[in-house]
Every structure is written in structure tokens, then in C-alpha cells.
Amino acid sequence: QEELVKAFKALLKEEKFSSQGEIVAALQEQGFDNINQSKVSRMLTKFGAVRTRNAKMEMVYCLPAELGV
């Protein structure tokens, strides 16, 4: 569980995922086979993730800066 949270936060820091499906796929690539869209959705809510525009003006998920991840 701890490893999943770390990987999840690291992915969001990249600010390149525009959908929950993309986050699920990226986590599965890292070996988290039991991850699915509903789990990702709950984690996004739990950590207060928001959708914002990145440098390329794409809408992407990211974590609020005050979490200091």
C-alpha cells in the first residue's frame, strides 16, 4: 500500500496524466496489478488532487503543492 501511494504521488508530480485511465495504466506498468479506475479515483480524492493546466496547456492531474511530495 505504501509503495502504491509513493508511485501514485510520483506519477502525479510529472503532471502529464489527463485521465484516470492513464494513471491506472501507468501504475499497472509499474507492477501494481490490482489497481483500477475506482481505486485511482479514491486516491485522487484522498490526496486532494486537482486538474490543472501544465506547461503545454494540457489539462492534467496534479497534487496541491502544500502536500510537499
Rank of each mutant, 00 (worst) to 15 (best):
Q1Y: 14
Q1I: 11
Q1V: 11
E2N: 11
E2M: 12
E2P: 10
E2Q: 12
E2I: 10
E2G: 11
E2F: 11
E3K: 13
E3L: 12
E3V: 10
E3W: 08
L4P: 01
L4G: 01
L4C: 15
L4S: 01
L4E: 04
V5W: 10
V5A: 10
V5M: 13
V5Q: 10
V5P: 04
V5S: 09
V5K: 09
K6N: 12
K6M: 10
A7S: 08
A7K: 06
A7F: 07
F8I: 05
F8A: 01
K9S: 06
K9N: 05
A10S: 12
A10D: 09
A10T: 08
A10V: 07
L12H: 00
L12V: 04
L12D: 00
L12Q: 00
K13D: 06
K13T: 09
K13C: 05
K13E: 09
E14F: 06
E14K: 07
E14S: 13
E14G: 06
E15D: 04
E15Q: 10
E15V: 05
E15M: 13
E15T: 05
K16E: 06
K16S: 09
K16R: 13
K16G: 04
K16L: 07
K16V: 08
K16N: 06
K16W: 04
K16A: 10
F17N: 01
F17Q: 03
S18P: 04
S18K: 15
S18R: 14
S19R: 10
S19V: 05
S19Y: 12
S19L: 08
S19P: 01
S19A: 07
S19K: 08
Q20R: 14
Q20C: 06
Q20M: 12
G21Q: 14
E22Q: 15
E22F: 04
E22D: 10
I23C: 03
I23A: 01
I23G: 01
V24D: 01
V24S: 05
A25W: 09
A25T: 10
A26G: 03
A26M: 06
A26F: 11
A26T: 06
A26S: 07
A26I: 06
L27V: 01
L27E: 00
L27I: 02
Q28Y: 09
E29M: 10
E29H: 10
Q30A: 11
Q30I: 10
Q30S: 08
Q30N: 06
G31N: 04
G31T: 01
G31F: 03
G31H: 04
G31I: 01
G31S: 02
F32A: 01
F32N: 01
F32S: 00
F32Y: 08
F32Q: 01
D33Q: 12
D33R: 12
N34C: 09
N34W: 15
N34I: 06
N34E: 11
I35Y: 01
I35H: 01
I35W: 03
N36A: 05
N36D: 11
N36V: 06
N36G: 07
N36C: 04
N36Y: 06
Q37M: 12
Q37L: 13
Q37D: 14
Q37V: 14
Q37P: 09
S38W: 13
S38A: 14
K39T: 14
V40I: 08
V40F: 02
V40Q: 00
V40Y: 00
V40K: 00
V40P: 00
V40M: 03
S41H: 11
S41M: 09
S41V: 11
R42V: 12
R42D: 14
R42M: 15
M43G: 01
M43I: 04
M43E: 01
L44N: 00
L44A: 02
L44Y: 01
L44G: 00
L44C: 03
L44K: 00
T45M: 10
T45E: 14
T45G: 07
K46R: 11
K46E: 15
K46I: 10
K46P: 00
K46V: 10
F47A: 07
F47M: 09
F47T: 06
G48N: 09
G48R: 07
G48I: 02
A49R: 02
A49S: 04
A49D: 02
V50F: 11
V50H: 07
V50L: 09
V50S: 08
V50D: 04
R51H: 08
R51M: 15
T52L: 12
T52R: 15
R53C: 08
R53M: 15
R53I: 15
R53D: 04
R53L: 15
R53F: 15
R53V: 15
N54L: 03
N54W: 02
N54G: 05
N54D: 03
N54V: 02
N54Q: 02
N54I: 02
N54E: 02
N54K: 02
N54A: 02
A55F: 05
A55P: 07
A55W: 05
A55I: 08
A55Y: 06
A55R: 07
K56A: 12
M57V: 03
M57D: 15
E58Q: 12
E58H: 05
E58F: 04
E58L: 07
E58T: 05
E58W: 03
E58V: 10
M59N: 05
M59E: 07
M59G: 03
M59I: 09
V60A: 04
V60M: 03
V60K: 03
V60Q: 02
Y61C: 01
Y61M: 02
C62F: 05
C62G: 14
C62T: 13
L63R: 01
L63Y: 04
L63E: 02
L63I: 08
L63Q: 03
L63G: 02
P64D: 04
P64S: 05
P64Q: 05
A65W: 11
A65Q: 11
A65I: 10
A65T: 12
A65Y: 13
E66Y: 07
E66W: 08
E66R: 06
L67A: 15
L67G: 14
L67I: 14
G68A: 07
G68L: 07
G68N: 09
G68F: 04
V69N: 15
V69C: 07
V69R: 03
